[in-house]
């Protein structure tokens, strides 16, 4: 019985992230619209968009290959698996040891690799420009992310997200300079990874400033729906990640019973809301960077991560 219950809880987490992801995207859009004194679309608009796209026929470019058709599903699957491995309402779920934080980051890198390839498949200049810039951005975001992982792993003695989250929730952590630097760097990386302002604009339709949107320009119908869903999942993943690492309050431990799970889920919902509002406020208050300024932005994240790691190597108490 225990095993079945464990697997059910894991399945509930997978369903939860899948169902909540479009909601978070809609919520951020709504808050941004309100901040700009617009009414904004309703919270369920992303779901409506997805259903509409899923029902439409796909228009494929004449020379699109099988890779182009398979990629949306691969991206969705890799992102979904990665998002379900990040603790949301509980730590230590049945399959949480399948991949540690490094592997989760690498799973997202796999998804990006295929998306960039798909951008080049049809052979248009916009697809190429998107892929090329996306890979440039990720070349700086990934090392920064890895240095953040180093910092966390050195503090918590583990790269296993559940163990790190449990450690972060325990009173022995206290305030540390390294963790503060890592938190700032993680937010910067998350903004870049999710193609948000100031790195990229998710709402842009000005071709020369697009990165993520340029790669998916040729997609339509159910393929586009999969990619949109994967982007929403990725945003949710990073908010969950930041929440479980730097705001681990309310996280329950697997096997805690229905009541504990409900508390965990409520806390998780609250964290998502706070994260969404903060993101919307940040995006509203800042202008987009020129593409060649993005490496400076991510270079700062890289330096913060390196500094945090070095501080830990030099002194275990900072």
């Amino acid at each position: 019985m225990g095993v079945i219950a464990d697997i059910l809880v894991q399945g509930a987490q997978m369903a939860l992230v899948l169902l909540l992801a479009p909601m978070l995207t809609g919520f951020v859009r709504k808050v941004k619209a309100r901040l700009m004194r617009r009414r904004g679309p309703s919270l369920v608009q992303p779901y409506r968009d997805l259903v509409r796209l899923l029902r439409k026929e796909v228009v494929l470019a004449d020379n699109a290959s099988w890779l182009f058709r398979l990629t949306p599903y691969l991206i969705f699957a890799a992102t979904w698996v990665a998002a379900s491995l990040v603790p949301t309402f509980a730590t230590g779920l049945t399959f949480s040891w399948t991949a540690d934080l490094i592997a989760i980051i690498a799973l997202l890198a796999s998804a990006r690799f295929f998306l960039a390839l798909a951008g080049m498949d049809v052979g248009t200049s916009f697809g190429g420009i998107g892929s090329s810039r996306e890979m440039m951005i990720s070349s700086f975001a990934e090392p920064a992310m890895l240095l953040i992982v180093f910092t966390l792993a050195l503090v918590a003695g583990s790269t296993q997200l559940s163990s790190v989250a449990v450690y972060m929730a325990s009173p022995q952590v206290g305030l540390r300079v390294s963790l503060g630097l890592a938190a700032i760097a993680l937010v910067m990386v998350a903004i870049a990874e999710n193609a948000r302002i100031p790195v990229d604009n998710p709402a842009t339709h000005l071709e020369l400033t697009m990165v993520h949107e340029a790669m998916v320009l040729e997609y339509s119908g159910r393929h586009l729906a999969m990619i949109e869903l994967a982007s929403s999942l990725k945003l949710l993943l990073f908010v969950s990640l930041i929440a479980c690492l730097f705001a681990p309050w309310g996280l329950t431990v697997a096997g805690g019973g229905i009541g504990a799970y409900a508390v965990g889920a409520a806390a998780y919902g609250a964290k998502l809301a706070v994260g969404g509002v903060l993101l919307a406020v940040f995006e509203t208050g800042i202008a987009k960077l020129r593409v060649f300024r993005v490496p400076d932005f991510l270079g700062a994240a890289l330096m913060l991560g390196l500094l945090a790691t070095l501080l830990l190597f030099v002194s275990r108490s900072l």
């Binding site: 899923l54 004449d62 020379n63 248009t124």
Partner: peptide, 22 residues
């Protein structure tokens, strides 16, 4: 699972056309 579910319940229609390229 995603491929099966979408092709079964949503849409499986596809059409070839020239590339969009804005």
């Amino acid at each position: 699972m995603a491929i099966y579910a979408i092709h079964r319940w949503a849409s499986r229609a596809a059409r070839r056309a020239p590339a969009w390229d804005c």
